[in-house]
Every structure is written in C-alpha cells, then in structure tokens.
C-alpha cells in the first residue's frame, strides 16, 4: 500500500504555500469548523495525499486534486488554515504511486 512508497518528509507548511504540481499529505485541518466539515464532506481525512493543480492569477484560489482525481478549489485565506507535510517522490516509483492512488488509507 501507500507505505511502500519511498518519500522524504521535508517540512510542515500550509496549503497556501504550495506550488502548482506539488504533492503533499494533509496533517490537520483548521480550527475553522465550517471549513473542517466541508473538507471532510469532500472526502478528505488527515493523512490523505493531495496535489496542487494550479494557482489562479493575482492571488486567486488554489485548486487541488485528491483521491482518484476529484478536485476542489479553495481561497488562499482558507488554505492558510490547512497544514500539510511535503512529500518528495522518488521518480522511479512514480508509476507505483499512481497505481496506488485509487486506494483509501
């Protein structure tokens, strides 16, 4: 499963600091309860892997892909409340990770 993927944990940061194309793992959601409910209802749990697809121009919302390819967009202000852990993928195992991403942890 996911644990077999080689990854190097680098540092904690918040979602708004991520660049387009970067992957990360969710650590925890904010204190903001409405945001918390919404993320859970979108099917996200702490520990899940996410990938940033794009950042809209002029500080617009950041769009994120998770699970088997579902996406959501979130304003930077709210993205600040979401803590993530950097993931660095071993290039050789990219295909393996793709193979696993449909599973749930």
């Amino acid at each position: 499963m996911i644990t077999t993927i080689s990854k190097v944990e680098t540092m904690k940061k918040t979602l708004d600091q991520m660049k387009a194309g970067e992957r990360a793992r969710l650590i925890q959601f904010s204190e903001n309860s409405a945001l918390h409910f919404k993320l859970l209802s979108l099917g996200l749990l702490p520990g899940d892997e996410i990938k940033v697809i794009s950042r809209a121009p002029f500080g617009g919302p950041i769009s994120v892909r998770h699970g088997s390819g579902n996406g959501f967009a979130i304003r930077l202000k709210e993205a600040k409340c979401i803590e993530v852990k950097d993931m660095e993928f071993n290039k050789n195992q990219q295909s393996e990770s793709d193979h696993h991403k449909g599973n749930f942890q």
Binding site: K38, F72, R75
Partner: peptide, 9 residues
C-alpha cells in the same frame, strides 16, 4: 462566505 468549491471532472 468561505470559498471551497468542488471541481467536477
């Protein structure tokens, strides 16, 4: 209001 929006495929 907050902005989290589903992006359907």
């Amino acid at each position: 209001s907050q902005f989290i929006m589903d992006l359907p495929r």
